[in-house]
Amino acid sequence: MLRASIEYSGSGGQLGGITEGSKAGDAGIEHGERLTAFADAAVSGDPAALATARDALREAAGSAVVVDAAGVIGNFQRMVRIADGSGIPLDTMVDTMSSDIREDLGLEGFESRRLAEQGALAKLFAPVARGAAMLGLRIAGRRGRR
C-alpha cells in the first residue's frame, strides 16, 4: 500500500523506512523520519524514547499528526495479530503485486512467511500485473491532483 500511495502521489518516496525505520531518513515522505521514530518507540515499549519521539513529531508536524499516527500504530498492532492469529494466506493479488519488494526489503525471512506460496502462473505474470497497476495509480494520482 505504501508503494501504491507513493505512485499515486508522485512524491518519489522510497520504501526503506519500513525496514530501516528512522535510519532511512524521511525516505522522500514528509516527516518520514519522525513518523518512523514514533512508530519504533511506540512498539519498543521504552517510555522515555516514546515521549521524545512524540514531542519531536508534535513540534515538527503538529498535534493532529501525532494523533493520526498513534491511531495507525494502534490499528496495526491489531492487524498483524489478526493475520498471525488466524493463519490466513496472502491474497493472490497482494502476493503478485508485492513479490519484488518483499525480496528487496527482506520480508521473505519473517517467520510469518509460511502460507503464502505464489503459483507458477502468478509468478510469470507478476511483473506485467504490477506494471499495469502502478501505471494506473500514477494516472489516477495525476488526475486527482489536477
Binding site: S11, L15, G17, T36, A42, V72
Partner: peptide, 20 residues
C-alpha cells in the same frame, strides 16, 4: 492530517517491527 504515504509508512513500519 497525514497523507496516505505517511499512513502506510507508519502501518508498514509497525507491521515490520512485529515481523508480520
Amino acid at each position: 492530517a497525514i497523507d496516505r504515504s505517511q499512513i502506510e509508512l507508519v502501518a508498514g513500519r509497525v507491521s515490520a517491527l512485529n515481523e508480520c
